[in-house]
Amino acid sequence: MSPDNYLYLAALLFTLGACGVLLRRNAIVVFMCIELMLNAANLALVAFSRMHGNLDGQILAFFVMVVAAAEVVVGLAIIVMLYRSRHSASVDDASLMKL
């Protein structure tokens, strides 16, 4: 199977994730969509690694996973705190930081 298909899949997943971030209001869903985008990028990296025949892309993918894990820890904590204080997980409700 041609590696190009992996890239198409990655692009599809990335677009899905981006649409989710833009269109969904629930912070948990937005968060999951961000994860989806990150994993789409990982998929593309691994595919490139395969195409070029070296391990650079895979190493980068590991880095992304580690960073994503750290981000999940912080991000989920923020969302939980937000929910506790305002009883809502909608990102549009948290719009106080404006002029």
């Binding site: 981006a18 971030v21 833009l22 209001r25 990102v91 549009d92 948290a94 719009s95 106080l96 930081m97 404006k98 002029l99």
Partner: peptide, 17 residues
């Protein structure tokens, strides 16, 4: 210009994308 800064995270995301 400051009207752009409306506080909605999703609109910031749009400008980022």
């Amino acid at each position: 210009l400051r009207r752009v800064q409306n506080g909605y995270a999703r609109s910031y995301a749009v400008s980022m994308f």
